[in-house]
Simulated assay, not measured.
Amino acid sequence: MTSTSFSHPLPAHDAPPAATVRGLSKTYGHGDTTVHALRSVDLDLAPGRFTAIMGPSGSGKSTLMHCLAGLDRPTEGTVAIGGVELTSLGDDQLTRFRRDRLGFVFQAFNLLPMLTARQNIMLPFELAGRRLEPGATERIEQVIDVLGLRDRLDHRPGELSGGQQQRVAIARALASDADVVFADEPTGNLDSTASGEVLSFLRRSVTDLGHTVIMVTHELDAAAYADDVVVLADGRIREHLVAPSREQVAATLEAGVR
Rank of each mutant, 00 (worst) to 15 (best):
A69E: 10
A52K: 02
P56Q: 11
L38M: 09
S62K: 04
L112K: 04
H66R: 05
T116S: 15
V41C: 07
R98N: 03
R99G: 07
K61W: 05
A15G: 09
K26M: 05
P56H: 13
F97G: 09
A117Q: 12
T20L: 15
A37K: 09
Y28V: 11
G31I: 01
G82M: 06
F109D: 07
R101N: 14
T78V: 06
G70T: 14
F109M: 04
F104I: 00
A37P: 03
D92I: 00
S62A: 00
P56K: 11
F104V: 00
G70P: 10
D44E: 14
L38V: 10
F97C: 01
D42G: 15
G82H: 08
M114D: 15
D14E: 14
T27N: 11
P56R: 07
S62N: 03
S40F: 10
L112S: 15
G58Q: 06
P17T: 06
D100P: 00
L89H: 03
G48P: 10
Q107L: 01
P16Y: 08
Q107V: 02
G77D: 12
T27H: 14
G103F: 00
L43Q: 12
A19T: 13
R39Y: 08
V21H: 11
S40Y: 09
L111Q: 11
N120L: 04
T95R: 05
R73L: 10
I53D: 06
D72W: 03
H66G: 08
